[in-house]
Nucleic acid binder design. Structure first.
Lengths: 211, 211
DNA sequence: CGACAGGTTGAGCCTAGTCAATGAATGTGG
DNA sequence: CCACATTCATTGACTAGGCTCAACCTGTCG
């Protein structure tokens, strides 16, 4: 098990309340690396909250090109839908523990679900700017800055996802992700410690690089 | 005045109800081409519904690169915010008539506002796939197919926006938009009638081109 | 230790961007 | 009504950022 995949006891997760105010009471369920949480086209029954690990929301084109619409990290809520049909596939990234709740039991929390969905909108719209107008190095800089804010500890980000996942999130190839990361190291703004751990040595410069 | 900018009497627009079920009662206001409806950073007071014309939601990078996050077409509602601050600028595309309502007076319609915001999320997440993984011709094909579904009449789409707007929405340059459109004509799937009107001569083939 | 998946690096290519010239459309004033 | 100005769109020549294909390296685990 990797350091970034802190497992928590399923029992301890039974009632997780993060600072978002949404008390998502449900059963904690463990997903293995790559396991599908739900698939595009499925009937939407549950909402989920990440207790540990991470998940990815994936959309595919017919020829296999893949876009990761969003990464869900500890504390994030996902699976809220207006319709009955899942609009994309969500899979565990590495091993993950999710708290599961029937969507129908959450209607009293409508206001808070609303906030989570709106946060997703804000994130998606920000990401549109990145995919539409930023260069490879700007995409990486944005990505690392964002991750640092969400799961960074003391300037170090433990990446839960593979290079392929990062590439598919940023609309690049693994080769470009790899090269760009090397280049950022050359500029002295980040420092890799193994391929799943990045230290942001100069976060201000990294933020500059986002333009 | 262009054919696609059907003006309606402000009085007639006082209570616009489209098939979305949201009865947005307010004052109709006319905006000139390019006029700002609200700016990034402004305090969010009103919500808007497009009566005629179109609007664009714009985000800028420091060096002037521009991303059009979304086009709002007749019937679309925008300006719903969770916070008090506008997250992007919205401007009229060509002349436009908008119905304006105080956000605070809309709280009883929360359920319907919710639907509009969720629709924006679905659109944004779909567009992420386009910007992240589609080629120039696939982007144009997606764009035209989408527009045809929203404002197409009999296979003809009257474009409310300029080439620059299209480019900034699709993450391309005007030259690439222009060339790609010419190329689509060469393939016989579309037919331009002046630069603001496109006939989808072979919509099925166009849908194929989206991959 | 050896095998394998995942990551890095290199060489060459291709799509889309840049820079520049031309052409079409719209608007203004004489 | 036409000459001119201005803006927007198209086309061409060239460039470059990122992709493809391929080899090599690294770290993780049996």
């Amino acid at each position: 098990m990797h350091a970034h995949q802190r497992m928590i006891s399923p029992l301890a997760a039974r009632a997780i309340e993060a600072d978002d105010g949404l008390k998502l009471i449900g059963v904690a369920k463990t997903f293995a690396a790559g396991q599908e949480v739900f698939g595009e086209g499925d009937t939407a029954v549950y909402a989920f909250k990440v207790a540990s690990g991470a998940a990815r929301a994936v959309r595919l084109l017919a020829d296999g090109r893949r876009q990761i619409v969003e990464f869900y990290l500890p504390g994030d809520v996902f699976g809220i839908e207006l319709g009955q049909i899942r609009r994309m596939t969500v899979e565990a990234v590495g091993d993950a523990v999710l708290v599961v709740a029937r969507r129908t039991t959450l209607t009293k929390d409508a206001e808070r679900l609303w906030r989570h969905a709106f946060a997703a909108l804000v994130r998606a719209e920000n990401h549109l700017l990145t995919l539409g107008r930023r260069s490879a190095s700007e995409r990486l800089a944005s990505f690392l800055t964002d991750l640092a804010a969400r799961i960074g500890a003391d300037g170090v980000v433990e990446l839960p996802m593979s290079r392929q996942d990062i590439a598919d999130h940023l609309g690049l190839t693994i080769e470009t992700v790899s090269r760009t990361l090397t280049q950022l190291q050359g500029q002295g703004v980040v420092e890799a410690r193994g391929c799943r751990s990045v230290r942001l040595t100069h976060p201000a410069a990294l933020a500059e690089l986002c333009e």
